[in-house]
Design a protein around this nucleic acid. Structure first.
Lengths: 210, 210, 210, 210
DNA sequence: GATGAATGAGGGTTCATTCAT
DNA sequence: AATGAATGAACCCTCATTCAT
């Protein structure tokens, strides 16, 4: 019972914190930072407002914690998979990237962070460094790997090539998604668009022998 | 003096309306829609809140008017200029587009509209149709013109090519700008990045004879 | 033309004043004093708010004028009509009184005046003196006339008898109407109730020979 | 002490609610619903506006609660008391009824409810059903009791007789009180008027043997 | 640690009134 | 005499935050 009283609260506290962040995420994504109210979050949580302030010292603090947690999430492994040709890998990554970017959660989260960029610059900057910037680096590394495999010639600028790759893949849908001008594309649409972008990319960066 | 007494009020009213929108734009861009308060706008205007409501029947109405006015602005002429080679034109357009997109006003306005996409979907959708969507079409038309001049081979999909062009040109800076991760690039940086993107584009879409 | 310029404005001014009062009456009756707005009245009038203030120096003033005008209206002639027996006259007056009291306009006007009795005691007091109090006197005089005809014996207190008469006639419907608990009674209902009240009244005040 | 920690908040909350209603009643009665402001109520309460909204979700809600509480109050027992003759009982009830009706609180409350009859018909209707309508029924039952005792002959229409009784008793003062045309009658005046009305009533409904 | 009542500043909005034209 | 833009006080209501229990 001693261990209980010592260890259990600790676990409980972390779990409770996570639960709060889960609810906060929902509310923030649905209503935006300013329109979201601590009352709403507390009510959905089934707890009291006071409790919220036991875990996060302010609404801003809660928002910070939410963004930080979001950033820790996005970490799938890139890189060639066994038994995959470089071309197949490029197509797979293009599709995965586009699917991720057009996903509802991604889009709404992006809106949320961008909305607060003026008011809370550090937050959006952190988000950018942890998210898009790291993604670009990982794509650059991935493309270098493909270059080593002979598929590509990046011309000595892997980051530039990565930027081009991502630009090609996402332009058609991302802005439109942000603006609510289109709903989330279905899988087939994503594949078609990604494949088209990869084809363009290969015309610009592919080696003759591909 | 007769024309005065007749026309002056009319002009005054329109001018006042514009002045209000100017101030509202500043406040909206700085604080976002939700955080912006009618009190702040009235105070900066040097008038009373009541006056605001003589011109716009609600905060939403004011925001709508702001977005509408923004949409009417962006309409420069594209197309080949006299004495310009197709290649020069492509470079010029690429630079102009990137300069526009990374401009402070553009970025902050984009943030603002996107922030309200969940709450007011029609507004952001309209913005998208009037802004990015029309821009894409105009670029597509422009590229077709260059194709006619022999510089490009769009492979029968001018819109796809336009999307690729814009994706290549903007990816490096736009997201970063949105997230406040970088300040507005200087002219030289814009030119370098645009030129690089154009080079990539030409490797993918240029004809042999270029 | 001189008479025109002199006399016409005078007429116009009175007519305009009446028109304003007509509109104000509608709005006051519909919304109550506090909820009625000068803007609404001006808008319905098709004029500007400034004009309103040219005719009435405040909202209270307008309300005063409305109540005063209302009081001047109610003045039908009571008294025996030629070829009518005293009993017939009593029944006729009872019915007329009840019809008047349960009429929509009467009820809503009563509500309106009573609502402001705390805030503006003189107004409701004036209304009472001009309306119900004078009505009571006229009924007393009327009953005295019938007494002279031998139908009634008022026991030396015509006002008391008049009060009893009116109390008997109106109790069933008036409060309920004020409270919106019943809609305006139809003619047959009014007649039946008035006749019943008259019968009671005659049992209390009728002479043996009736 | 356990009961304290459990029951005290509960009592406090109810007590606070009652205190708010007490203050709200004062303010509503003095200024009317529309003119009463939540700020005034909060200030008189010595609390903040926010607290008001913790107990009542809107001004309308507060008003509803006030009316409901008023309705629960008025419930004295009628009926013959031991050692009382029927005639004494009738006089007693007449006086009590008139005293109640001309009481300041009754009059002002009536004004208040009637004032909102157009805007909130359900409220005034409920008030009527709970108050005057039930009062009428109780008087009818009371009169029937007296009839059984041989004092009265209601002619088979107890409700009609009750209506007559109440009409006779109240007409002289009630309207005048509503209109602020007279101040609350003193006890002697009330008794005299009630006795007079009872005498009239007995002439109309009394049996020969009384 | 959890609660939820209390706070008070501030939100958007309305409105009677004024005044220059 | 008529207009209608301008005002600013006041309205109802919300909310992030605090604190006694």
């Amino acid at each position: 019972m001693q261990t209980q009283t010592i260890s259990k609260p600790r676990l409980d506290r972390d779990a409770r914190r996570e639960a709060i962040l889960d609810v906060a995420q929902d509310v923030f994504l649905e209503e935006g930072f300013a329109a979201a109210s601590m009352s709403t979050i507390a009510a959905r949580l089934g707890g009291s407002k006071g409790t919220l302030y036991n875990y996060f010292k302010s609404k801003d603090d809660l928002f910070n914690a939410y963004v930080e947690r979001r950033c820790l999430w996005q970490s799938e492994s890139l890189g060639l998979k066994p038994g995959e040709t470089p071309l197949q890998a490029l197509n797979r990554v293009g599709r995965a990237f586009l699917a991720f970017l057009t996903d509802d959660l991604t889009v709404r989260n992006f809106r949320l962070v961008v909305a607060e960029a003026e008011r809370a610059p550090e937050i959006s900057r952190t988000f950018y460094e942890m998210g898009p910037a790291r993604g670009l680096e990982r794509i650059a590394a991935f493309l270098s790997e493909l270059q080593a495999g002979g598929l590509l010639d990046l011309g000595g600028d892997p980051t530039g090539a990565a930027s081009d790759f991502l630009g090609l893949v996402q332009y058609r849908y991302f802005k439109a998604r942000l603006c609510n001008a289109v709903s989330a594309p279905r899988s087939a649409e994503i594949d078609a668009e990604a494949d088209r972008a990869v084809a363009t990319f290969l015309r610009a960066y592919g080696t003759a022998q591909r």
